[in-house]
């Protein structure tokens, strides 16, 4: 078992009860997709897993170890094994693609070394390998903000690959992209999942993407898991339960 989440609660200072006792398990090699409306707690859930947000109560167990309360060096080591990709890509716009990718390695580089930005050849080679995985080696020297949205997201994926992650979290990675680009970006996640064996947990909106890429689905509504199962089992009724009565499914190809 790679990840175990037990009875996770998150109450924000504003009083919002974002997660209300979420529990699930993730096996190694799975492609788990989390669906649900905006505000259902998907982003909070992912951020609680890698501790960008501190859960209020509950347990997150990663590789058999409770990481809910670890601090300092231990927490950094855990974070290094968990990659993350964001909806807004979150690249450093003014820096080159290459240095953005190398940023993924910061955890295992010395502070001094990383401030001077004098890296060894190994680091550069690794960065190029990661860029190769997402197919944009030719853009390495270009400023990150000169790329299109889809390309920026691929750079962000390469950055997370630099960590050699055991687990890759993706928070609505294609929500700011057009349908065609969405599919191509999702294919890179699939490739990483299948070829490198990296476990993926991904927040998604479009059911057609969910059916195509997920090996398992959990659905959140108002901070609670209301569905857990195979993607093909989500029928019309389940869809209405998850997204509300008025919702209609939109195809994305």
């Amino acid at each position: 078992m790679l990840l175990k989440v037990k009875n996770l609660h998150k109450i924000y200072k504003s009083g919002t009860h974002a997660l209300k006792g979420v529990s699930f398990e993730v096996e190694e090699g799975e492609f788990l997709v989390v669906i649900g409306l905006s505000g259902s707690g998907k982003s909070t859930l992912l951020r609680c897993i890698n501790r960008l947000i501190e859960p209020t109560s509950g347990i997150v167990e990663f590789q058999g170890k409770d990481i809910t309360h670890i601090k300092g060096e231990e927490l950094r080591l855990a974070k290094m094994k968990i990659g993350m990709v964001f909806q807004q890509f979150n690249l450093i716009k003014r820096k080159s693609v290459l240095s953005n990718v190398i940023n993924g390695k910061l955890g295992s580089l010395g502070t001094f070394e990383s401030i001077l930005e004098k890296y060894s050849d190994d680091v550069y080679q690794e960065a190029y390998r990661c860029l190769d995985t997402v197919g944009i080696t030719d853009k390495a020297k270009i400023r990150a903000d000169a790329l299109s949205g889809g390309q920026q997201q691929r750079v962000a994926i390469a950055r997370s690959l630099m960590q050699n992650p055991k687990l890759l979290l993706a928070d609505e990675p294609v929500a700011s992209l057009d349908p065609a680009t969405s599919n191509s970006v999702m294919q890179y996640f699939e490739k990483i999942n299948k070829d490198l064996g990296t476990t993926v947990i991904c927040n998604l909106h479009f059911l057609s993407l969910v059916r195509r890429y997920a090996t398992r689905v959990i659905a959140l509504r108002a901070g609670e898991i209301i569905y857990e199962g195979a993607p093909r089992d989500i029928d019309e009724n389940w869809f209405k339960t998850i997204y509300g009565e008025e919702a209609e499914e939109v195809e994305i190809r």
Partner: peptide, 10 residues
Amino acid sequence: VEAISATGAN
């Protein structure tokens, strides 16, 4: 900032 701290950087 979120992205860089998620990589385990200090």
